[in-house]
Each structure stands twice: as structure tokens, then as C-alpha cells.
Design a binder for these strands. Structure first.
Lengths: 103, 103
DNA sequence: ATAACATATGAACATCTATTCAATTGTTTA
DNA sequence: TAAACAATTGAATAGATGTTCATATGTTAT
């Protein structure tokens, strides 16, 4: 099991990590980092089924990692807020840095 | 399956997130943030079995999230490098910030 | 060597979860 | 209204994974 309304901060953090810890889901989040993008466009861009993308987006939205905006038939998803964008951006910068390989 | 020697950056990032995405494991990592601490001390501090802690530490070590240092009978674990410490510290700061609850 | 302590490891199990497929809901156009 | 398009949802399944228990390995004492 995974959530209560207001969990302790560590559980909250773990939940966030867990959701970002799946390859497919992380790619989806990164695809809608900043710029809103429709479900179908995410799917074709990442070569995934609409269904799978939608399932993942549901989880991401429930965790407030992304937000949804409907425009006609399409629903555009984007990272929920600056909070999330910052975390992702920081992470990408971190892994871009050369790792000091100590042995 | 989860790893190749040099994965693409996104997979690498997902791996990191996935390992931090378990509540117990995250608490273990946070316990040995900066200051090295022995397995048994982690276990008693978090009220977990030595076995469980050791299992988790093995995964964390394999992913270079923590490093091990033996002193006599005890093995002290600490976050592997500044890279990891920074990520964790940043995250803790992030979740400490008030969330703007938009609806 | 034996004993006591600390950690690690393997197997087994139960739970969780990512994915697929089929069916449904919502939206626009004809 | 129907048809076409976009997204969602539910059920089913296969694979991953956290935890426990028992056993093994390593280390320091006696």
C-alpha cells in the first residue's frame, strides 16, 4: 500500500521516487517537461500504446507530478508545477556531471 | 531486467529513482547520509532486522548509492559521494517547501 | 580451536506492478 | 443521429520485488 492523505515527509519522498523510478514512466514525464503535450503524441514519440501512456499518466496525475488540460478531443499533459520541473532539471544536471569513479 | 554497464542517462536516472523509491530503503539511505553508520545501528534505529537492512544495503551499494567501510566486525555505510548527498539534500529541501495547492 | 558477535546470503513466498487487450467514455465533425 | 477520433478504464497476466527465515561467512575475542 502506498498513501495516506498527509504522510510523513519521507514516505512522500519515497512515493515521488517510486513513480519516477520506472523507465517508461520517467520517459513520459520528461516528454512533458515544461511544454504540454497530448497523450497520443507522447505515445507515438516514445513508441508506446495510448493505453499504456494513459495508465501511467493517471498515476502521475494522482501524485500531482503532472497536470492535465483538455483542448477539444485531446488532453495535454505537463509537469504539474515548478517544484517538479526543478527536481527533474536538477536530476538531469546531476547525472550529466562526470561521476568520480572511486575504487 | 534493470542494468547494462553504461545505460542511457534516462535509464540510469530511473534506476536511481527506483532504488530510492522504497520507503524502507530510503529511510536506510537517509540514516547514513554523511555520517557512516554500522548495519546493526541502522537496523535498531529503524526497528528493522539486520537481514533486511543488509539486503537493501547490498542493492544500494551495487548502485553506488552507498559505500561500505569495514572496521573490525562492523561494516559502516555512508552515502557514496557528494553527488548522492546533494541529490538527497536537494530533495529534502524541496519537499520541505510549502506546496502550492492548485485546484 | 571454540565461542560470540556482526554481517551477508540464498531460498521461498506473498504482494505489488507494468503491460496488454478489449471495451467504454468523451469530443468533434458530417 | 452516426461515425471517427482521442483518451480512459477494467480485467487479466506475467514478471519484479520486499520481506522473512535459516544458514553461511567473516572478525575478534577467550
Amino acid at each position: 500500500m502506498a498513501h495516506s492523505l498527509v504522510e510523513n515527509p519521507v514516505s512522500e519522498l519515497a512515493d515521488l521516487f517510486r513513480l519516477l523510478g520506472d523507465n517508461t514512466r520517467l520517459r513520459i514525464v520528461l516528454t512533458c517537461l515544461d511544454k504540454p503535450i497530448a497523450v497520443n503524441d507522447i505515445a507515438s514519440k516514445l513508441d508506446l500504446s495510448n493505453s499504456l501512456v494513459s495508465h501511467h499518466l493517471r498515476l502521475l496525475k494522482a501524485a500531482r507530478i503532472v497536470k492535465a488540460d483538455r483542448h477539444g478531443k485531446q488532453v495535454f499533459y505537463a509537469t504539474a508545477d515548478q517544484h517538479i520541473s526543478d527536481i527533474l532539471t536538477n536530476m538531469l544536471e546531476h547525472i550529466a556531471e562526470p561521476h568520480p569513479e572511486a575504487d
